[in-house]
């Protein structure tokens, strides 16, 4: 991240360390992950030990310390999705992409993630590809979506 960009974020939060969570969220929103170099620079600017920043960055689920793939594939594993078969969809995707949740394919094409619940339970089980919602998912349907063979109508925010 450019130093000027970081500066802008910090200024927005008055260089206050109690805003660290929000600062990290803004960095991740731009970079898609938390780059080590940026965190080191952040530690310097806020005069904080790097460990204090890493403590937050590794505690909260929202953060990733490694670059994520071009496509973000998220399986909702909330309870409603679980009882309607989310585990089978996750397994199918793990098998197809040959990665576990939280990992990125070696070609940086896909990152597979799970989310605890997005509150769109009427669409359960739910698969989100690059923030597009695909409801009433099936393993086979998930594979065709990945391959771009199927266009789902239920696309949202």
């Amino acid at each position: 991240m450019e130093n000027t960009q970081l500066e802008k974020i910090l200024k927005n939060y008055q260089y206050q360390d109690f805003n660290l969570l929000a600062i990290l969220q803004d960095i991740q929103a731009i970079e898609n992950y938390l780059p080590r170099g940026t965190l080191e620079e952040l530690a310097k600017r806020l005069d904080l030990p790097l460990a204090r920043i890493y403590k937050l960055a590794t505690f909260y689920r929202a953060f990733s310390l490694t670059p994520r793939g071009r496509h973000l594939v998220t399986v909702c594993t909330g309870t409603a999705c679980h009882v309607r078969g989310a585990a089978l969809i996750l397994d199918t995707l793990e098998r197809e992409l040959e990665i576990k949740p939280g990992e990125t394919t070696p070609d940086r094409e896909y990152t597979l993630e799970t989310v605890n619940c997005l509150g769109s339970c009427a669409l359960a089980p739910l698969l989100i590809i690059d923030s597009k919602y695909h409801g009433k998912m099936l393993g086979t349907k998930a594979l065709s979506l990945l391959k771009g063979e199927e266009k789902d109508v239920s696309e949202g925010s």
Binding site: G119, A122, G135, G156
Partner: peptide, 11 residues
């Protein structure tokens, strides 16, 4: 709302 958006409300 988010629920209906998932079902295509924005479109």
């Amino acid at each position: 709302g988010t629920g209906c958006r998932g079902a295509g409300a924005l479109e």
